Simulated scan of single mutants.
Amino acid sequence: MTLSHLWCSLTALAPEVSRGHAGDVRPAPRQGGASCRQARTALKSPPETRCAAPCPACLPALPVRVTSVEGASNKMSGAGKRVLIVFAHQEPLRSFNGALKEAAVQALSKQGCQVEVSDLYASTFNPVATRADILGDLKSTESFRYGEETAAAWEKGKLSQDIVNEQKKVQDADLVIFQFPLYWFSMPAIMKGWMDRVLTRGFAYGFPQFYESGPFTKKKALISITTGGMESMYGPTGVNGDINVILWPMQQGMLHFCGFQVLAPQISWSPSFMPEEGRKGLVAMWEQRLASVWQEKTLKFAPLELFDPKKGFVLNDDTVKNLSTKPQGLTVGQHAGKPLPPNNQTKANDASAE
């Protein structure tokens, strides 16, 4: 990749990301060759008609690429299942995230599922965890500890009503889908605030009720995201880094931690730089996947039995010894200084954690 190509790619993507509209149906204004020529002039590069490699500013459209589970069949429907879609986008209808949300509602409803949507922006969900989340007296009068106080409030039925409402939706759901655009290599603040406030201790986790022993072991969870950058930018050699590393805190640290059976993520790469046909293709692939989502295999995480609690919950001696003979790490997080297992957080057929 030439320096001019890198500059053009970042110049094309930066305005969209800074405005927080990664994944909108309406593409950001494309300056095309003009912006590229300006960048090449600033970098004293040759006046080429295109970048040395494809970039969003130069190409009329990106190829339709999506991360999805392969080999699924349509034998099992979701009749009688309950689905919760937690949706975080400011534009519920005229955005690509909105299109994916609506497609999921329709596809799953046709299966006989009961689908409920928590539209966080439309409902003005409060993402800030504060003392106001606990009704009545606190457990401790000395210092405020949010985790301990919300755990006690959950046991006594003293959490604020908006938290109670969301917890009931999660409790009723067989599948929870989180739909949002990738913001700063993570989720929008309002979605993170939902995680902080709704997944309280006692309700969503405890000790030792966590990971595969967590409260939600009979529930499935799936992250569906859109990106501003191309798929190649999120590869092991891409400028943004490996998407598996980005997904790890969300899928391991939030969903799997609470016991969810985590399905492979649905990643819609750079829809803002696609023509309408490309975006329709991404939606169609999402609908096709949802037709058999109930029989999908889950992502693999390192089971608790591999960790030694006497040594501070690190990998036990037998696992470390076995890992020493392997060419790659166990998972994205438990890599033991070895190369990361490819696709550990993006494909359910990865066997690295076995």
Rank of each mutant, 00 (worst) to 15 (best):
M1E: 05
T2C: 01
C8D: 15
L13Y: 05
A14V: 04
E16K: 02
V17W: 06
G20T: 03
G20H: 04
A22N: 12
V25S: 11
G32M: 06
R37M: 13
Q38M: 11
R40H: 12
P47W: 10
E48Y: 08
A52H: 12
A53F: 10
P54Q: 01
P56H: 05
L59E: 15
P60D: 14
L62Q: 14
P63V: 08
V64T: 15
S73E: 02
S77N: 13
G80W: 00
K81Y: 02
L84K: 04
L84S: 09
I85M: 10
V86G: 03
F87H: 07
A88P: 03
E91D: 13
R94D: 11
N97G: 08
A107F: 00
L108D: 06
S109W: 04
V115W: 04
S118V: 02
S123H: 08
F125H: 05
T141K: 15
S143I: 09
F144W: 15
Y146K: 01
G147L: 11
E149N: 09
A153D: 06
L159F: 06
D162Q: 08
I163A: 09
N165K: 15
Q167K: 06
V170G: 04
F178T: 01
S186P: 03
A189H: 12
I190F: 06
W194L: 07
M195E: 03
R197Y: 02
V198M: 06
L199H: 08
R201C: 12
F203D: 01
G214L: 05
T217K: 13
A221S: 15
A221D: 04
S232V: 02
S232P: 00
M233H: 04
Y234R: 02
Y234F: 14
G241D: 08
I243F: 08
N244Q: 01
I246L: 14
G253P: 10
M254Y: 10
H256K: 08
F257T: 07
Q261W: 00
L263A: 07
A264T: 06
I267L: 09
S268A: 15
E276N: 05
K280V: 02
A284D: 13
W286A: 01
S292V: 00
E296L: 10
L299S: 11
E305S: 15
F307V: 10
F313T: 03
L315D: 09
D318P: 00
T319I: 07
K326Y: 00
L330D: 03
V332P: 01
G333M: 12
Q334G: 02
Q334E: 14
K338H: 04
Q345K: 12
T346Q: 05
A351S: 07
